[in-house]
Design a protein around this nucleic acid. Sequence first.
DNA 1: CTTGACTTTGTACCTAAGTACAGGGAGGAT
DNA 2: ATCCTCCCTGTACTTAGGTACAAAGTCAAG
Lengths: 139, 139
Amino acid sequence: MTGLKISEVAEKSNVNIETVRYYEKRQLIPEPPRTRAGYRIFSLEDVDRIKFIKRSQELGFTLNEIKQLISISDDKTQVNSEEVLQYSVQKIDEIEAQIKDLEKIKKTLQDLTVQCSGSRSSDGRCPIITSLTGGDSHE
Amino acid sequence: MTGLKISEVAEKSNVNIETVRYYEKRQLIPEPPRTRAGYRIFSLEDVDRIKFIKRSQELGFTLNEIKQLISISDDKTQVNSEEVLQYSVQKIDEIEAQIKDLEKIKKTLQDLTVQCSGSRSSDGRCPIITSLTGGDSHE
DNA sequence: CTTGACTTTGTACCTAAGTACAGGGAGGAT
DNA sequence: ATCCTCCCTGTACTTAGGTACAAAGTCAAG
């Protein structure tokens, strides 16, 4: 009686129906049992798992990483905590690297726009363009 | 005599040969003239343009945006500077938003790992997993 | 003249995370 | 019995920026 149809599970977990089927195919959720007619029957645990997937994605994990995360957390040995921790620390490092790259890009772009605003009255050529075009400055 | 073959232009601008053809198809570089046999003939300006594209990509511009940038800079009216400036300012905003998102993700992940390291001796369940799985905390 | 390195075109494949659609079956209300 | 809505499968398409490959033509050296 607690069985949910695909549209129900999709709605409860705020994803598209196709996404549910896609997660099943990617083996991120277990293969659900079926009615005699072939309809999938989901449980509230499936809803929780999909929400877990979505929250993990927001934290920057890919579906493959999430699959790993799930298998670690399903495996209830005492060591699992260690592995997940390592995963997360690594992910934090990756995010930090991304932030650094973006900061650098931002700085470059800001420098260029400052130059551009400053020298506008001279010849009409934007320093952003000329700096990108000509001067083989960084290689 | 200054004509460059595709492999030469690719090497000089540090991209794959296929990438050069791809940029031509995407109209990021002008259609080069051909020899009677159909071989493309490039110039040093093409090398500069490809380098421009690559540098712009590093600054976070997409190929479509770069195409715009090129058409603005080719159009030598006095207003071009203004447009490029606006483009860049907008891009800076986008980058800032991205950085903010990443900072937030990083903070969440850090909080979780701190909790995880702290409470490791209790029951072996990692707080990262349990916090993602159960507690419908944010929605 | 043959070999090897290069070029041409067109098409298909790649990652990531889905979305869309076609063609068919099922369930329940009228 | 019919209608509407839902579900099934399988396949193709999407974005972005390329990469890879096959079959064929070209060029220069030996």
